[in-house]
Design a protein around this nucleic acid. Structure first.
Lengths: 207, 207
DNA sequence: AAGGATGCGTGGTCAGACCACTAAAATAGG
DNA sequence: CCTATTTTAGTGGTCTGACCACGCATCCTT
């Protein structure tokens, strides 16, 4: 009945320590982290435990290991991860529908937030982006998620987007004109209008 | 320069095999998977490799291990994923405003979704909940997140709620009457009205 | 029959041994 | 002196075997 401490497994503790080491140590993607043997010595744990932690992080796409070289921090916009998880998780239709629904609503939220903060300069760039020959819906909403200027929303959107891509659904591409209309709506800062045009873009039924 | 085969590490291969075993074997959450020793024998790999795979899946929240008992498939319809990534990525970027803003908007989304699916029975229970002496805002919106019937949204809300509580902000408690008004708005299924009353509840400025 | 002791199977952890691979250092050749 | 080759040290990848701690069922005592 003591403190609920020490219940954590060693490898989880190592994950924590690594996280702190990375965050507080100001390490960036590409940086090399200590070798497994050094970590096991420094953290006072067996090498196998260190490996369990590293393998887990590797599967998450947070680090990258190269035999003979070492282990490196990765630029984690994780896709490895989502790929894997989706094969595990997204089996029933309900889960897939949830992804689509959630992504759409998060995007709507981002649109509303972006509308408040958007600058003329941003508008210009968006217009150019849409007219580009290789314009992609994904890039448009990624930009939007960034313009929302809310790190949390951006992260959530990225993850949902990865899931969405893993679904490999056949999507009907919207006309460029519709994206232009949506951007125009952003300028007006009229929430109703923005949501409406977003719904049209996503072929959602109106309510 | 041959086929890009056999490059996969053992533990990754084990993850794959486990996935197939679960999917094709028709195993459900709660089911027990073979012991580490049996797996290492059956898959012709060392126990440490098996463990690396299992630990990775555990960190992902896909399985659950209980010492002395075994390893079990977990109910993973949702996505532990967001949980993990956020604890890693949002470590020190405690953008409090982002948390508050995001939570509020996610709750609004849940309200809209819940409005579509809510039953008379749910309304009744909500009314009772509000009138309870120990009524808490948190419980109200947790219920709402569940009523939205979107597991993803629910998970996201839970995480945001955890962060929010960690902020330990002093909050001005809304009147019970306002919650009642919000529930009444849900019945009407009028999106505008719902969002308005939610804004009032959260003391947000109107646009 | 009820309660406690025991044993077996499980995950948790560690240490050590190899192997395969890489990059850098030492060496041989020109 | 500079280059090409070999050697070497360090790294991750894997396996084995040994313990420990814990949960459960079984058996034994009372």
């Amino acid at each position: 009945m003591e403190q609920p401490e020490k219940n954590t497994k060693v490898y989880v503790e190592i994950v924590r320590q690594l996280r702190d080491m990375i965050n507080k140590g100001g390490m960036k993607p590409g940086d090399k982290i200590p070798s497994e043997r050094e970590l096991s010595e420094r953290l006072n744990a067996g090498r196998s435990s260190v490996r369990e932690a590293l393998r887990a992080l590797e599967l998450l796409g947070l680090i990258e290991t190269r035999r003979g070289e070492g282990t490196f921090i990765r630029d984690f916009r994780g896709n490895q991860l989502v790929q894997l998880l989706s094969t595990f998780i997204l089996q029933d239709k309900k889960a897939k529908d949830d992804v689509v629904e959630t992504k759409s609503m998060i995007e709507a939220d981002c649109l509303l937030l972006a509308a408040e903060k958007i600058q003329d300069e941003d508008i210009k760039r968006l217009k150019i982006l849409i007219d580009d020959d290789h314009f992609e819906d994904e890039e448009f909403f990624r930009k939007m998620a960034k313009l929302a200027d809310n790190h949390l929303f951006y992260r959530i959107w990225c993850i949902l987007n990865d899931y969405y891509k893993a679904l490999e659904m056949k999507t009907s591409k919207a006309e460029k004109a519709q994206y232009h209309l949506l951007v125009d709506a952003l300028v007006t800062k009229n929430g109703e209008l923005i949501l409406n045009r977003h719904r049209i873009l996503r072929n959602m039924s109106m309510k």
